[in-house]
Design a protein around this nucleic acid. Sequence first.
DNA 1: AGATTGACTAACC
DNA 2: AGGTTAGCCAATC
Length: 111
Amino acid sequence: MNEFRPPTTFEQKVYDALHLIPKGKVTTYRALGEYISCRSAQAIGQALRRNPMASGAPCHRVVKTDRTIGGFSGQSDGEPVMRKKRLLESEGISFQEDGTIPEEQCYFFDD
DNA sequence: AGATTGACTAACC
DNA sequence: AGGTTAGCCAATC
């Protein structure tokens, strides 16, 4: 059975930042990383993937820096990513024909 | 303690 | 346009 590992300080920061994202917006791995003073977007991705929904964080609101969908639920493509996309659309996020999200819908922790 | 992994990114070829 | 390399950094092996 799943053994829960207490979240690390780093992960706490990631989750906290996620909660700051307004509904109807997304952020990027990098913007999130800058917010918590981490220059590795990869480490952000790791924090998210290592954490199941136990954190209660809206982990679907994080996309890649090029504003494409990015991964979800441990996968970079496939069904989980489809779910992520649907989830974002249901929250008001729109996707352009090239698969990117308009910059106006991105939240970069400007405030 | 060192090597590997990875929901990343940018630069290079 | 698509593959490889390099940089990044926390968690895991």
